[in-house]
Nucleic acid binder design. Structure first.
Lengths: 230, 230
DNA sequence: CGTCATTCGCGCAAAGCTGTCGCAACCAGG
DNA sequence: CCTGGTTGCGACAGCTTTGCGCGAATGACG
């Protein structure tokens, strides 16, 4: 269920750069090279997000955005020439969700895409916030940011809670240190993945009756960590 | 399975420093000393990551990057002169994944390399997960790294699990020791292929009711091993 | 500006895993 | 039945991975 992104960009080299950058992040990517094609593909594909260059031949980006906004609230990120404040203002007025100025870094762009996809899945998050993960006798409440064990609340730091939450979201599934770093620390994190070990250790100190014989957060040697789903 | 890194740097002392720092971290390193050689070696070697100096004689780093990005999404980290924002922006626009400014600390550089490899390796793992293999009454779950037999989980070590996973991916097909070594140990493994025998033996000890009459992992004398798909 | 909590890196120790070796068992062909 | 080659087995040494303590850096808070 990777998100599907429609890239609208007439300059093919740039479109290809975007495609590479996004596909590398695991997204499904489709491209359109002018305004008319953009609308056509949008209707056909119903993408989760649209990257839209405003400088397009014939039907320009603003027309495309206006047409889309007639019927859809799909997140749209505008690509606009450097410091062109007019583009920016006009775009936001028309209902763009974000904008990125050229020249842009692929990294920044990917970050924006992620942020916007996350925001729209906030509807899902509403669900999640009422949701609680249960691991044996641990109750992990995402909304209240608390972990309780036999009615007793266990104070965790931010990092500790995040790591536990990721693990508990998929009980039994083993996460490598790399995956945990990406999820919790972020893909931009530069540093030792042994930081994961330290967080796991402190988690166990707080959660486990006997940290040397963990019952909740277990190690899969040579791979990573997981929670026991009983 | 150490990652393979291509270093493109015309100044040989710097190239050697990079090679030393990276090899110390366990990476395989190849070097190229100009743009043409870089492209040649990239095509021949298909490295997992490229460290690319932008200041190269004749064909410069940007041309190299552009050529690579025509057909490949391999992570590229740009080495650029101090504070040269133009280089940085141009590089990222062309699809570089990261940049490091000279003079750099090897420590930071290695950290960046790790971070970028981490991102890409995770994408690969995403593909594999959610897969399960079934061999008779064995269920092999790649996401959970578990093997269950009649509901009972059987603890395996990493090696054992990997070997079983490769065999179970193609039930009935016979794998030679060499093939297994390539898949599990990696193509640059130096050592006796009898290591496979030992792992198979330990697998049988854990899986088979009677290891001397194996039901799951069978031997094809003179060839190799396979799993019975029945 | 000092204090405290948090987080990360480093180095050592412990635990667990893996490859090597020698020998026994086994198989197939003569 | 013998023989050469192949596979299975047990034990051990060395290595890798993980756990843990400590100190430094950072940032929040009063």
């Amino acid at each position: 269920m990777p998100a599907h992104i429609l890239v609208v960009e007439d300059e093919e080299p740039i479109a290809n750069i975007l495609r590479f950058a996004l596909e590398r992040e695991g997204y499904r990517v489709s491209c359109a090279y002018d305004g008319a094609e953009a609308l056509e593909r949008w209707r056909a594909l119903q993408p989760d997000l649209i990257l839209l260059d405003v400088m397009l031949p014939e039907v320009d980006g603003f027309d495309v955005l206006r047409a889309i906004r007639q019927t859809s609230g799909v997140p749209v990120i505008i690509l606009t020439a450097k410091d062109d404040e007019v583009d920016k203002v006009l775009g936001l007025e028309l209902g763009a969700d974000d904008y990125v100025t050229k020249p842009f870094s692929t990294r920044e762009l990917v970050a924006r895409v992620k942020a916007n996809l996350r925001r729209t899945s906030d509807v899902l998050r509403e669900h999640r916030e009422n949701e609680r993960y249960v691991v044996q006798d641990l109750v992990i409440d995402l909304a209240e940011y608390t972990v309780t064990k036999e009615g007793q609340s266990i104070p965790l730091t931010h990092r500790e809670f995040q790591v536990l939450a990721v693990l508990a979201a998929h009980p039994g599934r083993v996460f490598t240190r790399d995956q945990l770093v990406d999820q919790v620390w972020g893909t931009d994190y530069v540093g030792d993945t042994r930081a994961v070990d330290v967080t796991i250790r402190r988690l166990r100190e707080k959660l486990e009756p006997d940290p040397s014989q963990p019952r909740y957060v277990l190690t899969r040697r040579g791979v990573g960590y997981y929670v026991r789903n009983e």
